[in-house]
Design a protein around this nucleic acid. Sequence first.
DNA 1: AGCACGCCGACT
DNA 2: GTCGGCGTGCTC
Length: 798
Amino acid sequence: MKIASVIVDVAVMQTDRPFDYEIPPAWEDVIQPGMRVIVPFGPRHVQGFVLEIKEEQESRKLKPIVEPMDIVPVLNKELLSLADWLTAESLCFKISALQVMLPAAMKAKYSKQIRVTGFAPLSLSVQSLFNGRDEIAWEEAAEAGALSEIRKEVKKGSLDVLYSVKSKGRKKTVRMVKCRLSEKLLNETVQSMPKNALKQVEAMQFFLGRTGEWIPLKETGMSSAVAKALIDKELLEEKQEEMYRDPLAGRTFTPDTPLVLTDMQQAAIEPILEKVKEEKAETFLLHGVTGSGKTEIYLQSISEVLKKGQEAIVLVPEISLTPQMTDRFKQRFGNDVAVLHSGLSTGEKYDEWRKISRKEVKVVVGARSAVFAPFENIGLIIIDEEHETSYKQEENPRYHARDVAIWRAGFYGCPVILGSATPSLESFARAQKGVYTLLTLAERVNDRPLPAVDIVDMREELREGNRSMFSRNLFDKIKDRLEKGEQTVLFLNKRGYSSFIMCRDCGYVPECPNCDVSMTYHRHRHQLKCHYCGHEEPSPNVCPECTSEHIRHFGTGTQKVEEELLKLLPEARIIRMDVDTTGTKGAHERLLKKFAQKEADILLGTQMIAKGLDFPDITLVGVLSADTMLHLPDFRASEKTFQLLTQVSGRAGRHTLPGEVVIQTYTPEHYSIQLAADQHYESFYEQEMQMRKMGGYPPFYYLALITVSHEEAIMASSEANKIVMNIKPELSPAAVVLGPVASPISRINNRYRWQCLIKYKREPKLGAVLKQVLEHYAKQGKSNGLMVSVDIHPYVLM
DNA sequence: AGCACGCCGACT
DNA sequence: GTCGGCGTGCTC
């Protein structure tokens, strides 16, 4: 008999293995590895992925597959083995690794119906619930509080529970109609149709000269009632045609042509093209200062790949997946490009995915998850802004897109380009060691100078009596640009946009009742919100501790900056970009467009404006507080600060007008600020490498983070201790185990969190040991309420 | 994760 | 004596 081994859609340790199912003879030629199927699992039906198909001589009693969910496999052999690797690397469940490769629309949606069997009579109360129908939704019975009643009926055999599985996403279709008559017959019919059927005659006349042609119903102008009548009369025929939702509808792209490369660009692209030609896997680190023309190198490398009939994947950080960026790919490669980003609806993403899967496009530009694009002949993978932390997924499977890209490139034998003006220390260190090949673009295209950078010591400002958030230096320069009609970008180096409130009299700061974090103030709704558990409450007008009315809205959010700016420069036209103003679809694009068209003088924003902005009239960039990020409990704080400041500075003076940058800080002596001002990557690298070496952090050590949580602090800490005791003897003496200590965020959702950090260089057994820990707590933990999670190569240590 | 089965307290 | 609480164990 033919047997399929299937991974079921139940993400827990106990079901994290293949289950065997009989393939019914009817599906024997249909079902293949990589397909989704519906299988019975216990009393219900669930979605599953076929891993392999086996032929067995002896028949055994297995449940049969209910039905396939796909006509062709959604995951090919390569992606299936990538899932194996992901599972092992990130210690996730196999099902999570499989799901992450597919668009959300292909997740299963489960529902239950209750059906009358007719085998036995129904009780009166249940009869009235069904009210003549022979099937109702489970939820309806639940709402009516009739579940126990229903259960009894099911036992009696008078009712049945149906479990259904559906794919979430729908293919979008359009109704098409065609006239079935010949031209001659149509003419006659139009004449002979009853005169009172005016609309029908009108509709049929539309088809004169287009008989036999499929036309979207919409274009014929007839109503659906008319269409129905004509179809019933067999004058028309209809069908549903599958179509793609078009996220770029109404946008046109002026095709562009390759630019002439500078000598430096030429030198950088040659080794890449060579590997493309040889079809050899090699990872290049393309280190190019801002404005040095990395994108053109990407574009021309891709061109070469397409010429060979191969495909290319381009990863871009979500935050810079702006039209400005994607348009360049669209302009160069037109309809060969699919774009995947979070701004698309589930359906739109599904459509883009299908275009890729059917090989209707050759290039994918997208955020992290686009690294799983189901191409089968990849010739190049590019990761732009390689250092961005958003390439690491912070939920299971906790993968890094860079690692996945390199794996896939190994499979297909193709190069990977990691591009950045400020490479991550990990990547640059690998380039130094020769693991990656370093390519350098040291100068801006056309020799445009890097902008001049002023560092302003805000302590000094304060000492001299300037208590505003703008230093005199920055303020004068903003005023100057206003007068000259040039543009300014003001950057608030702050995670998010949020502020908190504090009582000025007693210093009370409202904290989330469930989590150990202060709450975020949302001005538009005058609410306090917790970003970790979602708890919300009205913002108090009186201090709950001391009843003082002096409540200060603390933390300089962009809104506050905007207000103060307007006070000082009422004539300035300001565009504010933060989570509040870019929440709606397309808002991001709209605001940037406004700025590009010079409808504003100042663009004020957070992280999201640090990248990709490339407007000729930006001649001033101001960083309001460069060091807010520096004091986070994160060994990467300096690196992040350096990267951000360098990126932001790169926004100024990219065209003919020279640029200036003002960086305001309370710690002007810090090397990450000093060296970012000098745009001196190598020096920063050297300096930071020393710090990492001393601290025993990456790239000198790898990290693994174990987090233990429990409702009782004691339990979390004692179990974390036990774990450490158990792990330590399994590791080599070279490994360092830090902690356990309480997590920086010591409580989330009423669960206390303890963590321990393992630093290691080579621990072949570590994966197995950690898996054991997870398995142990999956069994035990369920009853004692303990949760344990493991993050290999973590980016968030909180 | 669901869901069934099973074993103990408060109700008609 | 039954209803329903949630501990335990299983799902090809």
